[in-house]
Computed example of a mutant assay.
Amino acid sequence: MLKTKILLGLFLIVGVLTSCKKNSYDADEQLKKDDALILDFIAKNSIVAVKHSSGLYYQILNPGTGNEVTTSNTVTVNYQGKLLDGSEFDKSTSPVSFSLAGNLIQGWKIGVPLIKKGGKIRLIIPSVLAYGNESPGAGIPQNAVLDFTIDLINVQ
C-alpha cells in the first residue's frame, strides 16, 4: 500500500513537472526568420521598401503634406491588413480614429509617424512588432508577418 502511494505520488510529481511547458520564444531569433520571409516577399512582389532600424519595412506611397505625426497624436485612417499569402484579415469600412499612444501594435506606432497628414504608407511588420507568438484571433496566426496599407486622413 505504501509502495503504491509512493509510486502514485511520483507519477503525479512527474506529470506536473512535464506539463509545465517552458516558453522557448526567442524574439531575436523570430526577427531573423521574419526578416528572411519579408525579404523573399519583397523580392517576389517587386516592392521597393526601406528597412527601419526596428526591423519594420515600409514603402511610402504618398508622403503627405500635412502635419507631422508623433505618438502623442490621435490619427484618423483607412487601412487594409493582409498576411504575406495575400489573405486579408482586416479592413476599415469607414475612417477610424485612435491614439498612437494607445493599445496598438508597435509596427503602427513606428510606421505611421513616417508620413504626414494626407499620406499613404505600406508597412510590412515582422511578428515581433505585431502580435509576437500570440494569435489575436481568427485570421492572424502566431508569429505572423503583417502587411498593412494605411491612408492617413487626419492628425490631431
Rank of each mutant, 00 (worst) to 15 (best):
I105Q: 04
D147N: 10
T76R: 02
Y79R: 01
P95V: 07
I47S: 07
G64S: 12
S72Q: 09
G139I: 14
R122S: 11
V75M: 11
L129F: 02
W108C: 02
I60E: 08
A138I: 09
F98W: 01
D90S: 13
S53G: 02
R122G: 08
I47H: 02
Q80T: 14
P63F: 00
S99M: 10
V128D: 10
A138S: 08
P126H: 11
Q80N: 09
L83V: 12
L129P: 03
Q142C: 04
K44G: 14
P95C: 12
D90L: 01
Q106N: 05
A43M: 07
N67M: 13
N62P: 00
I110S: 05
Q59G: 07
F98C: 01
L61Q: 06
V96E: 02
T74H: 09
A101C: 09
L100H: 08
G102T: 07
K117N: 15
N133Y: 15
I124T: 11
Y58M: 07
L114I: 03
D85R: 05
K82F: 09
I105G: 02
V50N: 14
G132M: 13
V48Y: 13
F98L: 13
G132A: 06
G81W: 01
S46F: 12
D90Q: 07
G139M: 04
N73Y: 03
L123H: 01
K82I: 06
G64T: 09
I105F: 00
I105H: 00
G102Y: 11
G102D: 06
V75R: 04
N45W: 13
N133Q: 14
Q106R: 04
D85C: 14
N103V: 14
D147I: 02
H52E: 10
T70K: 03
E134K: 14
V145P: 02
K120V: 07
Y79Q: 04
I125G: 03
G111H: 04
G139C: 05
N143W: 03
I105C: 05
